[in-house]
Write a protein that binds this DNA or RNA. Structure first.
Lengths: 187, 187
DNA sequence: TAATATATTGAACATACATTCAATGAACAA
DNA sequence: TTGTTCATTGAATGTATGTTCAATATATTA
């Protein structure tokens, strides 16, 4: 099984390299050659591990879709506290586990920008939006969040996070914000 | 002068079409052919008006850099009030004058993502960041904004706005948020 | 060791798309 | 009218880059 394991290792190395480059430079500006060079391996060998560049992206999006399913808030925790800590976690990953961080950014980019249709559909299906809407509604009932259309508030919240994280991913100058600041948008 | 004026008109039509497409689909996924078709005009004719696709982008970035220079806050207006109204204005353009709105989004994208180097440099030089930092510092002195690194707060604020507006530009479902929500990040 | 399967390479190929160009039509000046 | 300039077109060209492939090395199995 050493053989198969090694192949898996190699695949993961390629995936992680591609993820980093896709997020830093964008999908279209990341050439197969760039990924190969960064791994490193020959260009041709890339196609021994992945059918195509799009396939590579799809694999990443699949990982991203599978991952963070449980964004639901336990009943006994106040929604604002929960969102703050969730955000704190994600932001702290930026340095410890850049993988999680990059994945968050990539998923957002795929949903929004000109990337292969298939990938976009999958990315859209896996979206933290739905559980957050009910979290916000509960927060409004309990008086910790202000009034307003919960759907718009949810989108506003997550897309703000998206914008900040995209900057963090590309600009080393940008320091992580205090999660409380962002949650304050809802209060 | 009718001749020259007509040429200017046509150039503007191309610029506005390109701006919209660049923002909606991304620079790399917008083919010269797409722009030509949308204007509409033949593909070849595009190069009678602009040297290249990159030149077209540069022209847009130049317009974006020239425009919104005066983001400074008058001394007698509280910074939070000012930022709220500034944001309100920009957001309301989304429907009335999509041009301004798209431009805001484009400039952010150029700064961050894989676009021609020259364009990025120019876009970076024209940045609303600097005046906002001093606005925030003043707000902190006057006690309307919370403590924290003013530079990080500034970036956090504008990149959040960027994220929200990018979504608004591509997703018709997304409604404009209340500017107060976003300024609340600073309070 | 021999035989088979897998990993790896670099160059060749195919395609998409920005760009060019020769030709045509329309506006304008004399 | 006649000549000149600009506008316009669609097909041809060149290039960048994703993908394929024949050849070689390395590992695995018998």
């Amino acid at each position: 099984m050493t053989r198969k394991e090694q192949k898996e290792e190699r695949r993961k190395a390629i995936l992680m390299t591609a993820l980093k480059l896709f997020v830093e430079r964008g999908y279209h500006d990341t050439k197969i050659t760039d990924i190969a060079e960064a791994v490193p391996m020959s260009t041709g060998l890339m196609f021994h591990y992945f059918e195509s560049k799009e396939d590579l992206l799809m694999e990443l999006v699949r990982m991203g879709s599978a991952g963070p399913g449980s964004v639901a808030c336990p009943e006994d925790v106040p929604p604002d506290v929960y969102l703050t800590s969730l955000l704190g976690q994600i932001l702290s990953y930026a340095k410890e586990q850049p993988w999680v961080f990059y994945m968050f950014v990539l998923m957002g980019q795929v949903r929004r920008t000109g990337m292969p249709e298939e990938a976009r559909k999958l990315a859209e299906s896996a979206d933290a939006l739905v559980p957050t809407v009910s979290m916000i509604k509960r927060g409004q009932k309990e008086g910790v969040f202000h009034k307003g259309d919960a759907d718009t508030m949810t989108r506003c919240f997550w897309y703000a996070v998206q914008g900040i994280m995209e900057q963090m991913a590309t600009d080393p100058e940008m320091k992580a914000p205090d999660p409380e600041w962002i949650v304050a948008m809802l209060k």
